Amino acid sequence: MAELTHFNEEGRAKMVDISDKPETARTAIAHSSIVVSHEIYEKVTSNSMKKGDVLAVAQVAGIMACKKTADIIPMCHPIPLNGVDISFSWEKNEDDTYKLLIDCTAKTKGHTGVEMEALTAASVTALTVYDMCKAVDKGMVIGPTYLVEKTGGKNGDFKRD
């Protein structure tokens, strides 16, 4: 089992020292989703939601969140991002609801990974969709949100089965 590194000798939280870690190319892909009603699906896909283009706003919000991850997750290092991409696709459910699938890819070249940035971006993208559509229906369900894949770093690559 891996040792937890975010605690000092007194058992208190600390930011891990990454200065001795090698700089490598790193990528992370995170996934989230939000289940919406048929009415919301129609309004989003026809771009007729009163607040504007839901997916365009959500995409920008996700990118902004990716860039600000270290500001909201206490032990995350601020890292330079080389690229962030957020993509969407739809699935129709049997109960006449729709699931918006959200995939976020974040890339950097540095001393630490971009998993938290990708996960934050995917989460905030889904939250933004909720915010922009809640006037129509507050029954939307967000999640699950999870890491799909990561490359680079001391612990090597990870790919969810």
Rank of each mutant, 00 (worst) to 15 (best):
T105D: 12
T120S: 06
G153K: 06
V16S: 02
F158G: 02
D157R: 02
S32V: 10
V36H: 05
M132E: 01
L127V: 04
L127G: 06
T24R: 06
D20L: 09
K99F: 08
L81C: 10
E39P: 05
P74V: 08
V84Y: 09
K43Q: 11
C133P: 01
M140I: 08
M1K: 09
D96K: 15
S32E: 03
E9D: 15
E39R: 14
G153I: 05
V124T: 15
L127Y: 03
G113D: 02
A2K: 15
P144I: 11
K43G: 00
G110L: 11
A121W: 05
A13H: 03
E3V: 12
A28H: 08
A25L: 14
T24G: 12
S32Q: 03
E94Y: 12
D20S: 14
E3W: 01
C66A: 15
E115Q: 09
H31C: 09
L100E: 08
G139V: 13
A28I: 10
M75E: 07
G83T: 13
I73H: 00
P80Y: 13
T108K: 06
S37E: 11
I18S: 06
N47M: 13
E23H: 13
E10V: 04
T151W: 05
K109L: 11
A65K: 01
E117M: 03
G153R: 02
K67Y: 03
T112N: 09
V60F: 04
E115A: 05
D137R: 07
L4K: 07
A28L: 08
G143N: 07
N93I: 12
D17S: 08
I18H: 01
K109H: 15
K109Y: 13
L4W: 10
G153H: 02
V141G: 00
K50L: 14
T108F: 11
A28F: 08
N155I: 12
G139A: 14
P78E: 13
D137G: 07
K109S: 14
I29P: 07
A106E: 00
T27Q: 14
L127P: 01
V16H: 09
D131M: 01
G62H: 01
